[in-house]
Amino acid sequence: MSLTQADARTGPGAASHAGPPGARLALRGVRLGHRGNTVLDGVDLTVEPGEVLAVVGPSGCGKSTLLRTLAGLLAPLDGVVEQDGVPVRGPDADRALVFQDDALLPWRTVRANVELPLAIRGNARAERRRTAGQWLERVGLAGHARKLPHQLSGGQRQRVQLARALAARPRAVLMDEPFGALDAQTRAEMQDLLVDVLAGTGATVVFVTHDVDEALFLGDRVALLGTGAVVPVPAPRDRGATHAGLRRQIINSL
């Protein structure tokens, strides 16, 4: 199912940004937590290549911990985290992380922030500049390249984070409530933008949110962290689709 969905997510820029295929991420019998404090236990979860998995759960249930463990920033207390069958041992450029807010380096201009992962990857200056420019254009911030993050609005900053995360063509994008701090209107715009910019990247996405509607709009599947259930969404990324039954079911399970 996942590959066909990745293929279905085509759009402008699909040709120029045809990245490597998405990664398959898997947690097997994982116990998550910080320094011995277990936050979640017995997590078994597979994220198929190229799919968008939305993860919902009440705040404090370990959504961020789950993402940090997937990113490799946090070692699991038990069990294994795998990418394509290989255990994850630490953070890697394959798995980009998008944070809720204030993750841009405030001393770098918008463009320099987007160029950073490219510089780390070893791209030449001219190529960095070109790629960063393209991505800023895609997120609608071409005219803001020389500004500093604090000169942008919250929504604009998240657009920059999106561009920064995707610029180096990661195989998986882990998003930690990236639109959680935005107002409803901006949030809907950002969701559409996300769908748009993901088109053609083929990247696997794990999208953590506490907003059930957001999860149902974006996710191919929705994982309920409280119960451990994973439910497929019939018509993902379709604004017209109504998921009243599914929505009630998810809310009841939380």
Partner: peptide
């Protein structure tokens, strides 16, 4: 903020990159 360091780590940056791109400019 640990977020800056985590961001650079998940871009594939190593210790040196974290030091010169995050720690030193951030502490300035």
């Amino acid at each position: 903020s640990p977020v800056w360091e985590e961001a650079v780590l998940t871009m594939g940056g190593g210790r040196g990159r974290v030091l010169f791109s995050v720690v030193l400019p951030g502490a300035l």
